[in-house]
Design a protein around this nucleic acid. Sequence first.
DNA 1: GTCGATTTGTTCGTATGTATC
DNA 2: TGATACATACGAACAAATCGA
Lengths: 207, 207
Amino acid sequence: MVKNTNKHIKSIPRMFEQVTQQIIDHIDSTPLEPGQKLPTERQLSELLQVSRSSVREGIKVLELLRFLDSKQGEGTFVASSPPYMIPSRVINKTIPMPELEHYFEVALMCAKTIILSFLKSEEPLPDQQERDSFWENFYQVVSSFGKRLPNPYFHSLWEESYQLLTANQYFERKQQPFEWSELDTAIQKRDLQKIFYLLDLVGISGS
Amino acid sequence: MVKNTNKHIKSIPRMFEQVTQQIIDHIDSTPLEPGQKLPTERQLSELLQVSRSSVREGIKVLELLRFLDSKQGEGTFVASSPPYMIPSRVINKTIPMPELEHYFEVALMCAKTIILSFLKSEEPLPDQQERDSFWENFYQVVSSFGKRLPNPYFHSLWEESYQLLTANQYFERKQQPFEWSELDTAIQKRDLQKIFYLLDLVGISGS
DNA sequence: GTCGATTTGTTCGTATGTATC
DNA sequence: TGATACATACGAACAAATCGA
């Protein structure tokens, strides 16, 4: 268990965050299938060398994410219902590729909705700073549009999935589907048809 | 809070679930604005008549949802960053209308993606049972399509937002935008253009 | 149907690390 | 530097639910 004494590292990893990851790791490495039973809280607390209280805080979080399911008098089980998208701050471990692709599809769905909604609103386009890579430009535009929408959840979902993808170096391995300037000029012209043609290309493009 | 058990009994809501709701209630009723400080864990435990451990489990959950932000040595604050979509099992309180509309927009975004993805996959259409209302039919179709997609998150997001909307009687107040048979036959014919024309109508229709 | 073992749910006391003044 | 306020973490104890003998 790493204690962070360094001050200029911003977030001190807290016990329950570490525990959450370690529980996920344990499920993956055992491996435990949906429906199977986890070690008891006391066993986990011994296994991970933390108190039972901390184990419980970690389990609570994973329970909320529909990852686990606890039943008094029985135990804690790996859930079989479809899980939430796991927030990036919960897991630091690298996510394997097919799973990352799922997050990318969600991000892209949000991006389409955000761009369409913003252009429909007829608000003036916010100024953009030209970035190095296609994906950085893409992120910046979607993000700045998303912030300005009345519905905050599109932006929230977009940020969450994008953060998780970059944390896993997804975009370093992903080819850019076309030159950024193509999408940029289409947006400037508010050419919805061209934009959606290009965004479909983004979804198809390989890695 | 009724849980899905095979015993047809109402499960006792657990402390941390009650605590999360009560903390939200407290923030609303005080009211506390983003950035403001919550009572300390000890005060909350006294206020809500539960132990500090239970308060902590509740705070952990709300922190994960970006609803709160705890800093050691300082306190716990109402977050200002855009929140996660709050899972329906966390809050039982009724959500006001403009907020519900946001959830509906997310649900609709997922529905569009799910229907489009499924029809593109060229899988045979699953059998549907005709339901009473437009929205029940709509839910059933999107849900059965969503379950069959390789990406589980579209379905997860759809279910979550739909559950929250029904829990708040959203659809009892919402007009149906057109006859269900219209959308049904368009799906049977896999007429994507007609489908998306209709789904846009769903988004525009008033309540 | 009862008893006992097991497991999660809940509480409390205590100690420690950290930020503010 | 010291004092105070606060979150963080631990461990022991007991309550409640479940299951099998």
